[in-house]
Amino acid sequence: MARSSFPIHAVLAAALAAVLCAAPAARAIGEAQQPVSGMWEALRGQWYADTRIDIAGDAFMRLEVPSNTPDPAATPLGIRFGPDAIGRVRQLRIVVDNNPAPLVATVALREGTPVETLDLRVRVDRYTSVRAIAETDDGRVVMRSTWVKASGGCSAPPSPAAGGTPGEIRLRGADDARALLVSVRHPNHSGFQIDPRSGEAIPPYYVSSIVLDEGGTPLVDAQTTISMSENPSLRIGFAKALPKPIEVRVADSADGHFKAAWTGGGDATAP
């Protein structure tokens, strides 16, 4: 059964593909070979007009999403930048074509910021293409996409992990101080969920931005939507040690503003 091949086989396959793709022969993949959808065509025109969109090889960017997600309402999505992209990307868009709100996040990076990995969790409403589109500092647009089989992620009821105080922030730094995991306590109601007790629709209420400031200006600025999972999570990995301190600012759709500071090390918690 296909389902049984995740995750070990998928990971082995990805590792194998990474090895194979390191071979010198450049892969010439045209945009035409990537999946298209009406929604994507519309968004592409709106965001990038007639700009040519290159398809990323592994030396630029990989997109890791389990094809059979373990949780449609919180599907892990990882961007892995290669040597051709690190320090050159100024903006990244993450799109789930068939979601009611296809744009998950628009992430702006400060010039020269050596982001190597970016991880978040997304809602996947039905079988869909998922895309990451990067814009480099010299104006190139580069895309990578994949296909995800899942359904119900936008209308899924709140999980057992729901609750707590909206806006609570947890910051966890990697041992080598090259990565920071930002966890935000928030229901991130999509507007497509039904309260099982009352039968009423739950109105949208979501985190609209997660910004990592350093030295008083944004280092990483993620503008987010209802397509982020409940308790949104953003993990940023650098090719070198993160600068510190980092101040994390979070805003939500009800004009809530929350912040926390990371000064290095492991767990840091802020209300």
Binding site: I8, P66, T117, L181
Partner: peptide, 13 residues
């Protein structure tokens, strides 16, 4: 894994 700040995807593996 959480103490190290690992992403969920890596932890699943």
């Amino acid at each position: 894994a959480l103490k190290r700040g690992d992403a969920m995807q890596d932890v699943i593996v």
